[in-house]
Amino acid sequence: MRRLTVPWTGLTRRRRHRFAPLVVLAAALGVTGGLYTALAPSPHAEAASGVSTASIDQGRGLFLRNCSSCHGLNAEGSSDGPTLIGVGAAAVDFQVGTGRMPAANVGPQIVKKRPSFDAQQTAALAAYVASLAPGPAIPDKSQLDYTNSDIAKGGEIYRTNCAMCHNFAGSGGALTLGKFAPALRGTSPRHMYEAMITGPQSMPVFSDSTMPAKDKREIIAFLRNSAKEPGPGGLSLGKIGPVSEGGVGWLFGLGALIACAVWLGAKAR
């Protein structure tokens, strides 16, 4: 078990106390932790520091093979893709975890699809990008625990800040030139939270400083509750409001009335 050592091998035998490795480890951890606390912008960034170098190396490998053609060999960005320095682990976890990245084709908007990487690979990529520069970290379980959140308050925040794009029931809606705000039903709380703190594509950023984590949990609680709500009128018609409801009214309601009128006017045989 004896390690190959530095030139001062002769001295080390006596100097290396049984607890020396532990002390060194503790000191190293202390320095890393201290530096991290001093430098990290967000109090929730610990997740990134717990990631091993192996994971970052694996992430770098994945990045070079799958992402660097657009985002640059050092994630500095190119004409085909933005820089990823400082976007943080949350952005990677959202974009790769929802299958938006790697992008399949260039269009008005990069859409959700089946993820190309499994959870472990996604975490490695996130760790690599987070190691480049500090940025929003992946929210931990306590940040996402919305079980005791105020659903009504969440609805209020949602209607002021989110509903104009994502629709009153989270069904999504159109933006300009083929872009759209996606539906939020079926999106996991983690991905919703990450979208809010990173502002992917057309979406603006709702950082924890301007919209506290508690507000975000309340929004998530409202959306999860809203998705479970049955349609009291029968068919919910996608919950997109007067467009689908009016369409059914005109097509089927008026169609039935016209059919009745034709039947009334037809001569019996």
């Binding site: 502002g199 603006p204 950023v205 709702f206 400083s209 301007t210 919209m211």
Partner: peptide, 14 residues
Amino acid sequence: NPIKAEEVPIGGVV
């Protein structure tokens, strides 16, 4: 909540 100018990120909306 009052808004600290330095806490509004670029691309952020309130």
